[in-house]
Design a protein around this nucleic acid. Structure first.
Length: 468
RNA sequence: GACCCCAUCGUCUAGAGGCCUAGGACACCUGGUUUUCAUCCAGGCAACAGGGGUUCGACUCCCCUUGGGGUCACCA
């Protein structure tokens, strides 16, 4: 196979969401698999809706996920001269023509066709044909330029995920390639760019299937090579509906903010609509090695936060401790925690990382190490009585001098339980309430050993003051 | 409305005509480990949308129905 070149071509009109990210991920992976190139192209020909913020959002997302593009980032607005040249040439060659129909006129035709149960399309009023007399050119209308689409025959391509697709040229109309202000439109720019950038595989959402025959016809008129097409099915929201602002179509960066690891999100997204046997957990080098369009599902997939959480938890548990510590420290700092101790953070993370679905949760779980907790009245009521206080007093009196390792503290607790003929929870639970602030935590010994005996004592004394 | 796409457990999926008594994962349930919780381990529940063909044989191929989705802009 010749060098594979893929592209991700978002329009900067909103945030980069999950669906776009999956398209980018697969385009990236396919290029990497074949030692090819992955191009990032910003389709900003719509001046009304494109914003600099959206461009930044795309860059941020791509960077966070490390789907690094090869070469420069292309902007369509910087290629206007090239588009004009091609349009001029097409006009000369008879592949394109001026159309003076007004918007009102077009709307009317569309409406009429709809009523007749026909496809609403341009009526070809200004399309030049042999032996056809064109209407007089109205003076008050600035024309658009249309592509002269073939009238007969059909367009067929073998889609890499959907299989063979055929669409009759009858279904297509002469679409506009340049607006009345002279600016080129999407369908036209895409074609020229894919051609100029030598894109071999156009990978995009299946909402573009209907644009594909138009683009193929245009390519053919230009005598340009036709790339392979792969139309990925959409990702549906958790409710099975199309991703929309109301249904989870949030920026990828909010996944970062919510404490998801980029490697987890990528793993999840890659697995959505694609599979490699029973493999659920795989890294990006495995994805690149394994990826094949024949394993891409052609039906749409519903997003599942639960499964993402499970994968995120897996990646958190298995992440390098230093890297994880750095991320957690950042979150703690952001939440205004001071007197952070690196060693303490690392030890605490190792103790808590298996129980967190995301980084924020993990940071939250660690909070009590750096700020004394405040247990709820209900919990105190549940675990404390006069007897408890006496036990605690005995326990703390003797706590010092038993060494600070998890093992020695555990041993002390065990012997304490035995000596006083009580059940383990009778002392462990109150200790949790005082030190952690909840009744659910890893072993008390491990926590005291990380927190220090002094601090544990301090919390005990503080608790006594409040208890009365 | 027209055209296009899609259809296996609740969800993500395996399945290239006999390997299917339909496999795995998430979720859920039960038990074990943890004298808490989480993790982990063992087990369980749960699906081929419906109807016609083709074939000795269909989850797999064809057709229809139904259901879902997409597109029909001087948006991308």
């Amino acid at each position: 196979m010749k060098d594979v070149i893929t592209r991700f071509a978002p329009s900067p009109t909103g945030y980069l969401h999950i669906g776009g990210v999956r398209t980018a991920l697969i385009s990236w992976a396919y290029a990497k698999k074949h030692n090819g190139q992955f191009i990032l192209r910003i389709e900003d020909t719509d001046k009304e809706r494109s914003t600099p913020q959206a461009i930044e959002a795309i860059k941020d997302g791509i960077q966070w996920l490390e789907l690094i593009n090869d070469g420069p980032i292309y902007f369509q607005t910087q290629r206007i001269a090239r588009y004009s040249d091609v349009i001029k040439k097409m006009l000369e060659d008879g592949h394109a023509y001026y159309c003076y129909s007004s918007k009102e006129e077009l709307d009317q035709t569309r409406e009429d066709n709809m009523k007749l149960g026909k496809k609403p399309k341009y009526d070809g009023k200004w399309r030049p044909e042999n032996n056809k007399t064109l209407p007089d050119i109205p003076e008050d209308i600035k024309p658009v330029i249309r592509f002269k689409n073939p009238i007969q025959g059909s367009v067929t391509w073998v889609d890499l995920v959907k299989g063979k697709i055929t669409i009759n040229n009858e279904e297509l109309d002469d679409f506009i390639i340049a607006r009345s202000d002279g600016s080129p439109t999407y369908n036209f720019c895409v074609v020229i760019d894919d051609w100029d950038m030598k894109i071999t595989h156009v990978i995009r959402g299946d909402d573009h299937i209907n644009n594909t025959p138009r683009q193929i016809n245009l390519l053919a008129a230009l005598e340009a090579p036709i790339p392979h097409y792969a139309h990925l099915s959409m990702i549906l929201g958790e409710d099975g509906q199309k991703l929309s602002k109301r249904h989870g179509a949030v920026s990828v960066m909010t996944y970062k903010d919510h404490g998801y690891l980029p490697e987890a999100l990528k793993n999840y997204l890659a697995r959505l609509g694609w599979s490699h046997g029973d493999d659920e957990i795989f890294d990006m080098s495995e994805l690149c090695e394994w990826f094949d369009f024949k394993n891409v599902t052609s039906s749409s997939a519903q997003f599942s936060k639960e499964k993402l959480d499970w994968i995120n938890n897996y990646y958190i548990k298995n992440k390098d401790t230093d890297e994880l510590s750095a991320l957690i420290k950042k979150i703690l700092l952001k939440n205004k925690f001071d007197n952070l101790d690196d060693k303490k953070i690392t030890d605490a993370i190792n103790l808590f990382k298996e129980r967190a679905n995301n980084l924020n949760e993990l940071a939250q779980n660690l909070a009590f190490f750096f700020k004394p907790p405040k247990a709820s009245k209900e919990l105190i009521k549940k675990y404390f009585n006069q007897n408890t206080l006496e036990l605690l007093s005995l326990f703390f009196k003797d706590l010092e001098g038993h060494g600070l390792s998890e093992a020695t503290i555990d041993e002390y607790i065990k012997s304490f339980v035995k000596l006083n003929e009580i059940k383990f929870p009778s002392i462990a639970m109150p200790l949790r309430i005082i030190i952690v602030g909840t009744d659910q935590s890893p072993s008390v010994g491990s926590i005291i050993s990380i927190l220090s005996i002094d601090e544990s004592l301090r919390r005990y004394n503080e608790f006594l003051k409040q208890y009365d």
